[in-house]
Design a protein around this nucleic acid. Structure first.
Lengths: 189, 189
DNA sequence: AATTTATCTATCCACATGGATAGATATCGA
DNA sequence: TCGATATCTATCCATGTGGATAGATAAATT
């Protein structure tokens, strides 16, 4: 019925995500998106609603995957599960290449300055996600809720830090020391 | 001999620093600098060498102050000194207002993507500073160098995380839980 | 084969940006 | 008071941006 696109709709979102992840929002032009993904500026407007809307879709995709496939699953032996998750998390052999640009959501939070409600919604979802997952793990193993909260907050902080360290170094190996130190700390809990 | 400026040279740098801290580099225009500080775009070019050069001066100022007045001083009773430093660090009563925008250097590292040598130089200075200060403290109290390195890395990570959490919330009180948890952890070392 | 539809290609546009320039204006020393 | 100098005010400019539009093109339906 109609001409086929240069790039499939979902593939375009994934490709754009990588670009935003690397370059941020403001420093990535629609012409560069066009050139590097094949998605034309025409289709960007007509089918995705423009640059900002496409960006939000890449953020939502990012959070979906974080929620379903990335964060450690709650199960048995939660301290050891957490410890080894941190080790894996920073092992360059097991990280996707794109990780060297840190965390798309953290980068975005810093690039925008809290004035954008679309971004703020995603930000809230992100932090809720992080805080809940660690709380869920630790509350199984630790009785004092005070202590669970304290340790959850530290682990959440270290997740943030890992991403900053890796992006700053532009190198997936840069988080190993922090991750291994964290694993060691968790095993002492 | 010559007409006096709207704003004194060093005051202009400080005022610009606050603006960059809040808005970042790309999202702060020279017209806005002009309007909010009194520094004219003419003088920005003639005396400061343009927007980028002024920005680098604000970064250098930031690092100078971090080095001399902000980070915890090495002395006696270093674990307690570190613990209470973290508490103070996140106490909204004792933080400057501008802190709710996080750390100028971290924001900058994320906004630029490692391709700018001017920024990279400051980035290296920044991380060197952080790693050295914690190592200096902990190596007095802890014998195993392995352990010193591990714990230094964690504290450095938490500094980064504190700034991200505070900027994300746009609220100086947002780091208290993490800071207090960290103080508690340090006192258990 | 003709028609319809969505996409591609190629412009065009309004706007914002960092920076440059030229004339007016302070401020100071002589 | 006058001259020199640096700054201010007010434009101007080249460039890049996201987005819009119009004609050409490809794919599917009839």
């Amino acid at each position: 019925m109609s001409r086929s696109r240069n790039i499939e709709p979902e593939a375009a979102v994934q490709a754009a995500q990588k670009l935003f992840w690397k370059h941020g929002f403001y420093d990535l032009g629609t012409r560069q998106i066009e050139q590097e993904t094949g998605l034309t500026r025409f289709t960007l407007q007509k089918s995705y609603g423009g640059k900002k809307a496409l960006f939000l879709r890449t953020l939502d995709l990012y959070l979906d995957i974080a929620e379903t496939r990335f964060l450690p699953e709650v199960g048995t032996d939660n301290l050891e599960a957490l410890a080894s998750w941190f080790e894996q998390r920073a092992d360059p052999e097991k990280m996707p290449e794109i990780s060297c640009y840190g965390c798309l959501m953290i980068n975005t939070i810093i690039e925008f300055h809290g004035q954008d409600t679309d971004i703020n919604q995603r930000k809230d979802r992100f932090f809720k996600l992080l805080r809940e997952i660690f709380h869920a793990h630790l509350s199984i193993v630790i009785k004092s809720d005070d202590e669970v909260q304290a340790k959850s907050e530290i682990l959440m902080g270290i997740i943030l830090a890992l991403n900053v360290v890796i992006r700053a170094a532009d190198n997936n190996a840069a988080g190993q020391k922090l991750a291994n130190s964290t694993a060691r700390m968790i095993r002492e809990w």
